[in-house]
């Protein structure tokens, strides 16, 4: 299967991962604008778990410093999309 490495494709993978792993289903649907801290309340363990899942999916290495400044799911998708292409 061809993996969709576009920003939208990565975002879909992120959302699927979160829906599978979060204990509580978020109230609003997840979008590119969903903020990692304010809306999802992910702590460092959970956010790094998400990063590791993306590494596995796209067979890439996401170094810790490239994701230190992200705020929203869209930001993460952009970083990953750039690395995967």
């Amino acid at each position: 299967m061809d993996t969709d490495k576009s920003r939208e494709g990565v975002l879909a993978v992120i959302i699927q991962h979160l829906e599978e792993t979060l204990d509580e289903t978020p109230e609003a649907p997840l979008t590119a604008d969903t903020r990692i801290a304010e809306d999802l309340a992910l702590d460092s363990l959970q956010s790094f778990e998400m990063i590791a899942a993306l590494e596995d999916h796209y067979h890439i290495t996401i170094t810790v410093d490239t994701v230190q400044h992200v705020k929203s799911l869209g930001d993460v998708a952009e970083v990953v999309s750039d690395l995967a292409r």
Partner: peptide, 8 residues
């Protein structure tokens, strides 16, 4: 300690 989590 340096900054630890994503964006805080």
């Amino acid at each position: 300690y340096p900054p630890l989590s994503l964006g805080q």
